[in-house]
């Protein structure tokens, strides 16, 4: 299953495609004695160079599993199907021993918890240097010098000295900057940010978002920004996909999605946001729970919680279709 399409150097093909990331029909299945569970179901999307795609949805909707699939890190029991390509280069059929070449170099990831995403036993400078040493073929000394530069880039004050610090000696915001420096050290084509600001307080959140946008402009990478925080997504994303129970239910530009949400689930999500102008005693909630993802489910996966659902919704699976230019919805009740 070895593919020769992998290049370690940026070749012409890398620049040929304006799309940094293309995902086509990505599915992840987990088989157990209880049957087959499809946690990501036929997800397709693309992100252009320099663009940010927001991925929203509640816990367990397949956001993070999609990200792990992009990195080839789905647990052994899982089965990944579909096509993934980075800058026009297919990743789906590469051999297991070639994955380390991709990770960190072509696709990088920023994690939710800066407290646990750094190795507590290593100086932060060494952690960044290690990535550079692995991928860029730099000597340890050169890598260490570059690491200091990377720390400067993410706005760490007195980086040469801070490079000797251990993670526990930094604040949460500083640690997240280090995690970002580590992810961007090799100038990846695609950065996956899995709730990168959730664990931070609000002022630090704003700083980190600003930093990520600045670096995105400088490096020109595509960002897949996973979050359940709609406010943050509306702030940073160009396009947004809404996921529910492993499927994309709505896709639109950020402005369009937040001003004109069409899928009942998206509408529900936006309605649950607290609003400062009209104080409510109780915030609206979406009733019910995410359905079990085994083979018994028929029709729309959201039907059980949807106020508009009728017999058609319970019987037929809605497909994602274009309602207006650039706005796709998977719902029987939404017509162009």
């Amino acid at each position: 299953m070895r593919s020769n399409r992998l290049e370690s150097e940026p070749g012409p093909s890398r620049l040929a495609s304006p799309l940094a990331l293309e995902v086509d029909g990505l599915s992840v299945d987990f088989s157990s004695h209880e049957g087959n569970k499809r946690v990501v179901d036929g997800v397709s999307y693309a992100i252009a160079r320099g663009q940010t795609l927001g991925v929203v949805g509640e816990s367990g909707c397949g956001k993070s599993m999609t990200a792990l699939a992009l990195l080839g890190l789905v647990p052994k029991q899982g089965c990944v199907t579909g096509r993934i390509s980075v800058s026009g280069q297919g990743l789906s059929e590469i051999a297991i021993d070639e994955w380390p070449e991709i990770r960190g170099k072509r696709i990088a990831m920023v994690f939710q918890e800066p407290m646990t995403a750094l190795n507590p036993a290593m100086r932060i400078g060494d952690q960044i240097a290690e990535v550079l040493h692995l991928h860029e073929g730099l000597s340890w000394k050169e890598a260490r010098e570059r690491a200091v530069e990377e720390l400067r880039l993410v706005g760490i004050p007195s980086p040469a000295e801070r490079a000797n610090a251990y993670p526990h000696q930094l604040s949460g915001g500083m640690r997240q900057r280090v995690v970002i420096a580590m992810a961007l050290a090799c100038r990846p084509d695609v950065l996956i940010a899995d709730e990168p600001t959730t664990a931070l307080d609000v002022t630090i959140q704003a700083q980190i978002l600003e930093l990520m946008q600045r670096l995105q402009d400088e490096i020109g990478m595509a960002v897949q920004f996973i979050s359940h925080n709609l406010a943050v997504v509306s702030e940073i994303a160009d396009d947004v996909i809404v996921m529910y129970a492993g499927q994309i239910v709505e896709r639109a530009s950020a402005d369009e999605l937040f001003s004109n949400p069409l899928h009942p689930y998206t509408q529900g999500l936006i309605a649950t946001l607290p609003k400062i102008e009209n104080r409510q005693d109780e915030l609206p909630v979406i009733p019910g729970m995410v359905p079990r993802l085994d083979g018994t489910l028929k029709g729309c996966r959201f039907a059980g919680r949807c106020v508009k659902a009728d017999s058609e919704c319970h019987a037929l699976i809605p497909v994602l279709r274009s309602i207006s230019p650039g706005h796709d919805v998977a719902c029987h009740k939404v017509r162009p």
Binding site: L71, P100, E101, R103, G104, E113, V179, A183
Partner: peptide, 14 residues
Amino acid sequence: EREFVLAARVSGAG
């Protein structure tokens, strides 16, 4: 199970 081990794999460590 800690995230930094996953982070190390994500950054391409064997």
